[in-house]
Write a protein that binds this DNA or RNA. Structure first.
Lengths: 343, 343
DNA sequence: TTTAGCACTCTCTGTCCCCGAGTGCTAATT
DNA sequence: AATTAGCACTCGGGGACAGAGAGTGCTAAA
């Protein structure tokens, strides 16, 4: 593969990203550093087409990049810049806006910021709660036979659930139950909680289970919630302003957006770029997803990235995604409340 | 206004709702119970146009209803049916799905159900928390200098906020503060909480404020949250499948959906139907909003309804909105946790 | 290997024209 | 006075057609 042919490919992609129109040989010959005629470019483009990097919408039109063309372009020609220092501190501030001390809030901030910065749809998966430790369990009576169960993790995630009992609960019984769950759940990592944990609990509670089962069930559900990967979105509207994307596909995508969880984490480390092929069911054709993973301690805790058109300024966006995931990794690992100093 | 002319108007609206095409005189003459020629209908339609109930997209097309035409049609011809008993119990179940004991959860269920049933976008405003009583305030230490403030209302609304102190807090200080806020906020209605409440608190805490101010600030923010009207949406995607609505307007609407709060409650009691005029900025042209209010006790607590195309089956949807708001009024007023029986 | 030249292809745009649906008006009918 | 039949008219939509323009592939020369 010729040096010049690569440059031609790059120019086609650049120009196509800029204008959205198929690019002709004449336009290219005018913008290359080396001076060659349009006929030469035509020959090169024919070869690039043969190799599968370019295609023609119809005979008398210019060329547009194929998936493979974009891929090669990104590999060879996109050099993400390092964000300048002042931009970094600006982003840091965005992440910590509104006193975001909890993992959820930080991720929410990251997703919101990313959507704003890129004018794309930003998305993050988060299974960090799974790698946290339960730092608090509270059973709070709030009314006649009504209780709120509160679970707080070392990452600052807070989950609550209201439940109603079938029978009255005496203060002693409540104390007994509260102590039991505190003893047996506080300090336990979310990962470790299993069916067994609850089997044990049921056994330990014995005859009390008749009364307490809604409470136990709620705790069970909350802990299941914590184990669940969650997905956060921001800027879904932005998709609609990309003329390249099919509105109906966008709607379908938004309706099924939660199914994205699985594919989000299905990546290697580092920046990943995926294209929306036409045959993928709930992914938008001509869309591009730029994601990277973040960690909590040594474990991958989730992914963060954007979804936009394939015709997008990769060089500008990649650094943002990179920086945010780096930063999330830091914040997840260091900046979480330190639970050994609990009261 | 002639009896027959009214029937003509009704037929035009019916037919236009069914087909989405302008309706001609011939079609009408074939579907009226009285036998009249198309020429007669033409004369009637000309009058109806003069009166502002119908309009013509262009000279050689049929007529379509104007806003006034729809309005008259709804007033005179839409007789909402009473939902059959089995449908009512089905809806009741939808409202209580997933053990929805809290106001928020019930409203969420109502909105979701309404969106599903009608294939429209459902929306609800909720200022019920404002009319509740604070039933619990908890200050929960969760880590080094980290605390969670928890506010629970009699309606079962739960709000929490994590905050970080600048200085260490001793157990005694924490107890003191916890007791102070419990004494002074529990049992107080959310409405009554004001700047004064916090002025008093600041005075009472005196020198402690240096340490405690983040906690006080958090409580302040949480109580402000409770006072705030919130809006809940469901089924935004559904708007996109109405061919009558402009996609760009839908996007603009979704981007600004929170601004709907104000206009939502700006209605009389009972079913209200509003049309999206073209000049309204963030409202979708050709859209129709069917809303009704629900109460908590004697006070209006919010509105519930749907947004869809003007060409919609009013007779079918109105009963749903009516039933849900009736039901919400019941649930808000009776079915909330009863706070005088707190532990 | 590159380039100039040329014939060719295909889309896009505008024009023209006709068809059909629906109208308004007039004159006749009930 | 109200209704109807009849008729000329209007307007949008769709198909056919032509010309312009952009871009190509190929050939032959540099």
């Amino acid at each position: 593969m010729d040096e010049r042919k690569l440059k031609v490919l790059a120019s086609v992609v650049d120009e196509y990203i800029r204008t959205g129109e198929p690019v002709g040989s004449k336009a290219i010959s005018g913008m290359l550093d080396i001076k060659v005629s349009s006929a030469t470019i035509r020959n090169d483009m024919a070869v690039l087409e043969q190799l599968g990097y370019l295609e023609q919408p119809h005979t008398s039109a210019g060329r547009i990049p194929t998936f493979a063309g974009y891929r090669l372009y990104i590999d060879k020609f996109v050099n993400p810049v390092r964000l300048p220092e002042e931009e970094r501190t600006r982003l840091d501030n965005m992440l910590e806006e509104n006193g975001a001390f909890t993992e959820d809030a930080i991720i929410q901030n990251a997703v919101t910021a990313l959507a704003e910065l890129t004018n794309c749809t930003a998305v993050a998966s988060n299974s960090a709660p799974q790698f946290s430790v339960i730092s608090k369990v509270e059973v709070i009576p709030t009314g006649k036979r009504m209780y709120v169960i509160l679970l707080i993790t070392s990452g600052g995630n807070i989950k609550n659930k209201t439940c109603r009992l079938e029978f009255d609960l005496s203060n002693e019984q409540l104390d007994f139950f509260s102590h039991y769950v505190q003893e047996n759940l506080q300090g336990v990592s979310v990962e470790e909680i299993s069916e067994e944990t609850f089997d044990k609990m049921v056994t330990a509670l014995g005859a009390y289970m008749v009364i307490l089962s809604p409470l136990v069930k709620s705790i069970y559900e909350l802990s299941a919630d914590l184990k669940q990967k969650s997905v956060t979105f921001s800027g879904e509207e932005n998709l609609f302003s990309c003329s390249d994307l099919d509105k109906d596909e966008i709607v379908r995508f938004i309706e099924h957006k939660n199914e994205l969880v699985n594919m989000l984490d299905d990546t290697f480390n580092g920046i990943q770029i995926k294209f929306g092929q036409e045959n993928d069911d709930f992914i938008i054709g001509n869309s591009s997803m730029i994601v990277s993973k973040y960690k909590k301690g040594s474990k991958t805790a989730g992914s963060l990235g954007i979804i936009g058109p394939m015709r997008i300024d990769y060089a500008k966006i990649i650094p943002y995604v990179e920086y945010f995931t780096e930063k999330l990794t830091l914040l997840m690992s260091d900046d979480v409340p330190d639970d050994e100093s609990n009261k």
